[in-house]
């Protein structure tokens, strides 16, 4: 026993011991190289966006990363342009409302399909999923005709209505609700809560990581949406940011420096949304790991 303890290192000793450094082998070098290349590919457009936003118009076709004469004139111009403020506001309103609606409706439908047994449940789920197979381009014409009939053209409602609930979000939430044990729901039922209270008080807090992921997907999707807002809006005041930015300049001369400046500013809300919700996603992943 004494000998065994002598030769067996304690946990503390094991923790303190640093693993001996081994020279990297060729496989590792290739892996690191590919990751580095991937990283460069991902970050270059952002770097060029910021670089271009700091250039004067005569310099924008110069591929240098650091401008010869850096300027913040483009930022001043864009921020002082009244249109940009409206586009920004439109995008915020649309993205926030659509995100909230998705979190609410997708989770309600997902929860219902997951936790209730009723005739036709499976058919409804398949019907919702099958809409994923229809490309947006095909839906644009019926959406437009609908909007025209209902008088929704050039309105917030017209821009938002196709995305207030998504098949992907419903599917995502249904799959996450599958991980909520039925005992939780039954216990709440016995404790006197109605079904809506159970969904809100018990089930929703348990799928926060999924809600966070859904919120990020929906917010980004709506923040960057281009085709449908372009089609459904007519007045400059109703443009969203991507539509508005594309209108900088004219057919003969595109003002890339202004577009890039607007794009750089428009990344700020997406960064904020990601920073707010990412901790829920990471916590979800960690929890899933610990449970097993």
């Amino acid at each position: 026993m004494a000998i065994a303890e002598e030769i067996r290192p304690t946990t503390d000793a094991l923790l303190k011991t640093t693993a001996p450094k081994r020279p990297a082998n060729m496989g590792q070098i290739i892996r690191w190289g590919l990751l580095f290349l991937g990283g460069i590919l991902m970050i270059m457009p952002i770097v060029y966006m910021i670089s271009t936003s700091l250039k004067w118009p005569h310099e924008i076709y110069n591929l240098k990363l650091i401008p010869d004469e850096p300027t913040i004139e483009n930022y001043t111009f864009v921020l002082q342009d009244g249109r940009f403020f409206w586009w920004f506001l439109n995008s915020i309103v649309i993205a926030v409302i659509t995100t909230l609606c998705n979190v609410l409706f997708d989770s309600l439908v997902g929860y219902t399909l997951c936790k209730f047994r009723f005739p036709g449940r499976y058919i409804i789920f398949i019907a919702i999923l099958s809409t994923l197979m229809i490309p947006t381009e095909m839906l644009v014409i019926p959406w437009y005709l609908m909007s025209q009939q209902f008088g929704w053209l050039d309105t917030y409602w017209g821009i938002m209505f196709p995305g207030l609930m998504t098949a992907f979000g419903t599917f995502l939430m249904k799959q996450f609700f599958e991980t909520v044990p039925n005992d939780f729901i039954e216990a709440a039922r016995i404790d006197g809560l109605n079904e809506l209270q159970i969904w809100w008080t018990v089930a929703m807090p348990l799928v926060k990581p999924a809600l966070a992921a859904l919120a990020i997907f929906v917010f980004l999707g709506n923040w960057t949406a281009f085709i449908w807002p372009l089609i459904v809006t007519n007045s400059v005041e109703m443009y969203t940011l991507p539509v508005g930015l594309s209108s900088f300049g004219d057919e003969a001369d595109v003002a890339w420096e202004l577009i890039m400046t607007g794009a750089a500013i428009s990344t700020i809300p997406t960064l904020i949304v990601f920073l707010i919700f990412q901790r829920f996603i990471i916590r979800g992943v960690v929890m899933a790991g610990l449970k097993g």
Partner: peptide
């Protein structure tokens, strides 16, 4: 309904 039966239940996985 369960809530009107004046019962309480302890589940296997605690819930």
């Amino acid at each position: 309904e369960p809530k009107h039966r004046d019962i309480a239940m302890v589940f296997q996985n605690y819930a």
